[in-house]
Amino acid sequence: MDKVLATLHSLAGKRLVIGVPYVWLLLFFVVPFLIVFKISFSWMQPIQPGYAPLFAWVEETQRFVATLNLSNYQVLLQDSLYLSTFLYSVKVAAISTVLCLLVGYPMAYAIARCGPSTRNLFLMLIILPFWTSFLLRVYAWVGLLKTNGVINNTLLALGIIDQPLTLLYTDFAVYIGIVYSYLPFMILPLFSNLEKHDLTLLEAASDLGASPMKAFFKVTLPLSMPGIVAGCLLVFIPAVGEFVIPSLLGRTDQLMIGTVLSAQFFSARNWPVASAVAIVLLLLLLLPILLFQRYQRRELEAAKR
């Protein structure tokens, strides 16, 4: 190992190799966020590029003038629309994440306790929908949930209901959409955790007189916490900013923050306010994102022999 390192250290090209992904990510991932941050303090401008420069050379006074504009953030604080939208997005994402966990945990558990060949088959079945278009899978639910959609037609035909239920354009539809789209992201980290459990621990618990239920809550569940946290973060973080699912399935009287952000951007064409929304959303998600990064780093280090 030391020899490898020594050789690589001496290698003049090493820096070059590191530099390629570094420069790419700096330019196309980090710098864009700095620009968003900068523009969130700009005044809106009706002409291209849609925002006034922060620093300008003023001819009359022969000076650089910086105009730092906090009004975009004031708008967010004062307009109750934004606060309620943020709260609603967090609520929807949190409820969907819990539902996703409740659906995904038993599935991951069942797969982890299968024989190796059936296990691979089930894993493939879980991942397969992920490879097909996300958009089309969300769209499939429109056909199922519509007033004259498949679910209502079936329930009516079976005589379970006499009036079609309002399913589409509700909170319920958004929960279903998120659980449906993000389920693989919940199941996979749970599975990779549950698969590694030492089953003799459960035997020991049962030998000591614990009921299977108690053994599950005292042994399996605590051991699977890292998988639960990872799965929940993988669902929660993107779900807060979700745009496609609420626009196709969600309510029209209560928007989610992703929808508001793109409306500010594309319809109102107010780029500075849209940037401020993006910055606040990012700050809101910073802690979960850092948590996820810690988990990811541990996972990859544990994979090393």
Partner: peptide, 22 residues
């Protein structure tokens, strides 16, 4: 570098989208 390669995995798409466009 490690942080820059894992952040895009969970970043909400609207944020990445607006950042890239700007």
């Amino acid at each position: 570098l490690s942080a820059m390669t894992t952040a895009p995995l969970v970043m909400p798409e609207v944020i990445t989208g607006i950042a890239m466009l700007l």
